[in-house]
Design a protein around this nucleic acid. Structure first.
Lengths: 340, 340
DNA sequence: CTGTTAGCGCTTTCAA
DNA sequence: TTGAAAGCGCTAACAG
């Protein structure tokens, strides 16, 4: 590809500038105690050779860190998480740090692998949307002085900083708003109850019903949809039931979108009107919710801010005085918003 | 956070296992020429200490590489690019490599910074959705033996592998389909023509019109929308014109979504029917397109596959025999699909 | 089968 | 203001 397919080192820069490697190093770290004209020469050599300090070599020296933050996400392709990642990236970039990104596909074993790999790469810290409920790998990271921040989901028994949403409150308010509008048969579509958000949102849903003296009809509850297609399938089952719900609470955007797709498809045959279909409440806003053929409200929150907050918690531990403080558990508020 | 906030090294593992560092190293690299029982002891020490090889230290040794791929994307939060990133991540993970992710926000200077940083971290290669038309930083990367793959957009004058979409063909087919249905006043919403995809898609649009003896009406063309809100604004202008278009070609999902949002909002006042609004063709499929109040077709393609292809091109250079072959330019086909 | 030596690229410490 | 030495964690190459 080129005559010189090697990356220059301090030594080469030094030779070219006619100085010692130390002078190059000093110049590159601010130029303290280096004569201006020498600095000049060094910088020229750097430019001519296209030299970049080897950060990996630097990071193995005592005291130095890698400037890397490991981010383990369950599904990068979900706009919610990718926006989250953007928030992390932005905040990390402010401190000159970079993001090492890994996708866990909601698989705890993969997550553990990933964390091990991240530790091997000497990340300064970890931001994790945990896929499982085991925390050995994360506790291990902390034991080695690599702080962990949990985002969106917490893990019982792991003393780590965390940012989560007001899942219970949001689900409660969303469900209550449906009850206020007179609904009594309310369906529930969500991810597994064993997942932190799944369990909490379901709890809020149930609490709202029980406050009004209603009990949950198991026929109307489906809680294992991870993808839009699965959600759509579950919606079909709900709609085809003998007594279909008049409203559906969707615990996340995957499920809400699946529901809308199914409703829209069934409307397509022209035999029924939008009023024949349940109204929707979705935990998570999403693009084009306003095109819904049925009334929809969303429990809104800002994934980017979630990412920023997670990053700030971590950076506090790394750069701030928060080395040894007890874990902080932040719960970000959500807001209920009628979309149509 | 813990008593032992230090990361163990080979040496400590060696001491604990009662062997030399070399034996630890050998055991960890497959155990060739190490007695099984010694391996056993080493692995126990590794587990007890929670040891992870320092990849940064390994990577500075001659011949060894960092196992990192730098990915520079213009906007991670765009579902299109995050799905692209997923494709890259998946393919990279197959070779044990990780993704170093940076967001350029469509800013060429930031991209150059990012690339410099990536080189400093000794990435094995770079996958870039270029934000600008300058390529010095990328050529520089290649000169140092760090291959570059361009995705979605190419840069004139840079001899690098690339995967792009059949932009011209897709836009041509989409526009032609509108013409086939009798439209003659077709609006155009897109990103800047100076952006690779923007220019190519516009060219396909124009070509389709000209083939039918039509010329472009500048009043109906808006080409500087980067965000959904900007697209919505541009749509309003188009719809409010004296002779609004009867169809709109949207050059990407941001613009299509903005158009749908504006149309949906204007429908909300109840004074007009869907038939009063233009039909849409969108380059890029997107979630919930089928909820469109007006007929819509999409020019469909798979961003995940784009990511995978980009990664494969890069990995070929890294692991395969493709070190010195001339650049390969791949153009992925797209398909026109009526959504509603 | 195992250990010693040396050196990757860099920078802290010490000496000049 | 500059340089030489030493060592960060790791592992080829060479002994044994």
């Amino acid at each position: 590809m080129s005559e010189r397919a090697r990356r220059p080192t301090v030594k080469e820069v030094a030779v070219r500038a006619g100085v010692s490697p130390m002078t190059v190093s000093r110049t590159l770290s601010g130029g303290l105690n280096v004569k201006p004209d020498v600095q000049q020469r060094v910088m020229e050599a750097v430019a001519e050779l296209g030299y970049h300090r080897n950060e990996n070599a630097r990071s193995i020296r005592p005291g130095h860190s890698s400037g890397l933050i490991g981010v383990a996400i369950t599904n990068i392709a979900n706009p919610y998480y990718s926006t989250f990642a953007l928030g992390v990236e932005e905040e990390a970039a402010l401190t000159g740090r970079r993001i090492l990104l890994g996708n866990t596909s909601e698989d705890a074993a993969r997550e553990a692998d990933l964390v091990g790999d991240f530790l091997g790469r000497r990340v300064d810290g970890l931001i994790v949307v945990p896929a499982g409920t085991t925390s050995a790998h994360l506790a291990h990271s902390q034991n080695q002085g690599v702080p962990v921040v949990l985002a969106s989901r917490r893990i019982d028994g792991l003393a780590a900083d965390s940012v989560v949403l007001a899942d219970d409150d949001g689900a409660h308010r969303g469900t209550s708003s449906l009850l206020d509008r007179g609904h009594t048969r309310i369906g529930y579509l969500g991810n597994a109850l064993s997942i932190f958000t799944g369990g909490r949102r379901y709890a809020g849903f149930v609490r709202a019903l029980e406050e009004r003296g209603l009990t949950v009809d198991p026929q109307l509850v489906a809680t294992n949809q991870q993808t839009v297609d699965q959600a759509r399938e579950a919606t079909r089952t709900l709609l085809d039931a003998e007594h279909p719900p008049t409203a559906i609470f969707c615990a996340n955007n995957r499920n809400a979108i699946g529901a809308l797709k199914e409703i829209s498809a069934q409307l397509g045959d022209g035999t029924r009107a939008p009023a024949d279909f349940p109204e929707i409440v979705s935990f998570d806003d999403f693009e084009l919710a306003e095109l819904s053929p049925v009334p929809i409200s969303v429990i809104d929150h800002d994934p980017r801010e979630l990412g920023r907050t997670a990053a700030r918690l971590l950076l506090d531990r790394l750069d701030g005085g928060e080395r040894e403080t007890p874990p902080r558990a932040i719960e970000l508020p959500v807001s209920l918003r009628g979309v149509r």
